[in-house]
Design a protein around this nucleic acid. Structure first.
Lengths: 186, 186
DNA sequence: ACATTTGTAGACTGATTAGTCAATCACTAT
DNA sequence: ATAGTGATTGACTAATCAGTCTACAAATGT
């Protein structure tokens, strides 16, 4: 009966369905089964709730991305694991992934400090930098690499969400698209 | 003194800066220098205004994409022209491009009929299909191809917007990133 | 047992919002 | 001229919203 969690869950669902503008806090509270005032007890303002939801969701994704990434394997295998994990998470948590994108291309994104953004991207950039240094990845500016990979994943995810694929077919698409990406950056 | 145009221009600016939720019609009217009622004379509802703005902006982009595309040249050159045009337009019309993305990852996008979306994508898909048939592009599902290209462009654009590059440097980035994309899909 | 904090409720408020409406105004065609 | 049409205005309304407040309940520490 974690109300804080319940608020986030409900807010996510409603924001994705109706957007920030058309989701009153009263509706969130009602649908979460709590009183209006309780919501504001946990989140001082609606903006704070939105920001907390983003941070929470983003961190869930990041955690999942790096799961099972044993350091023993080759850079390609580690990279592929991150790639696969990300798309799998996005497919199994479509609302969450959609919310991240919705948030990122909204003025709310501007409320996050540049330091926070840099901090978020740091581990990914370090990983790519190591790949470049090891002469596995092309010596491109690491920011381009990062952006291209992110966009690629967003694209594949959009494609996978556009139709219903069998698990096998989905795996095949992920493998093939990974190969396209890998060939592009190595 | 085209008020309809003026409303769209102002709405775009405000939506990008504050978001749909935090941009009242009254503010749009005020900043456009017209009366409240005049806005509703041209657009029956706020939603209608938002949809009209999207259609208008998207069509401006599409027009620009295919500008100067002489049929005489090789598929690669035509494709590169479209690629370059798109990024150039996005860079010269940052707010407009951002708005398109903001709209596309918002619940408003759901208000557009599937037919309309299909219709929008049709020329692009046809072009790619021709490339596959001519054995220039890889025989991938055309939807994947389309999505990957779109995402790639979105990514490069994001990168170009993240810093200030000289025109020369920008051109270099566009050329190099085009090569990455081209190699990936051929 | 008691005191202090923390959680929960829901009625309430002041501000804001999308959209209306009745009244002019500008323009065109006859 | 005159009638008719659409453009323009801004005050107005009914509804809605984010956030407050007071009161009570549950938990926690001493």
């Amino acid at each position: 009966m974690d109300k804080k969690e319940e608020i986030l869950k409900t807010a996510l669902k409603l924001f994705v369905e109706f957007g920030f503008h058309a989701t009153p806090t009263s509706k969130i509270a009602k649908e979460a089964g709590i009183a209006n005032g309780t919501l504001f007890h946990y989140y001082k303002t609606k903006d704070e709730l939105i920001l907390a939801l983003y941070a929470h969701t983003k961190s869930r994704l990041t955690d999942y991305m790096y799961a099972n990434a044993s350091k023993d394997e080759s850079l390609e295998l580690v990279f592929k694991s991150i790639y696969t994990n990300t798309i799998e998470w996005a497919q199994e948590n479509k609302s969450e992934f959609y919310f991240i994108q919705q948030f990122s291309t909204s003025p709310f994104y501007g409320l996050i400090s540049p330091e926070e953004i840099t901090k978020q991207a740091k581990p990914h950039l370090d990983f790519l930098q190591a790949g470049i240094k090891a002469a596995v990845l092309k010596p491109l500016p690491v920011d381009i690499l990062y952006t291209l990979i992110n966009s690629h994943i967003a694209g594949i995810n959009q494609y996978l969400s556009s139709e219903e694929f069998s698990t096998a077919k989905q795996k095949k698409i992920i493998n093939e698209s990974f190969q396209l990406l890998w060939d592009m950056i190595t």
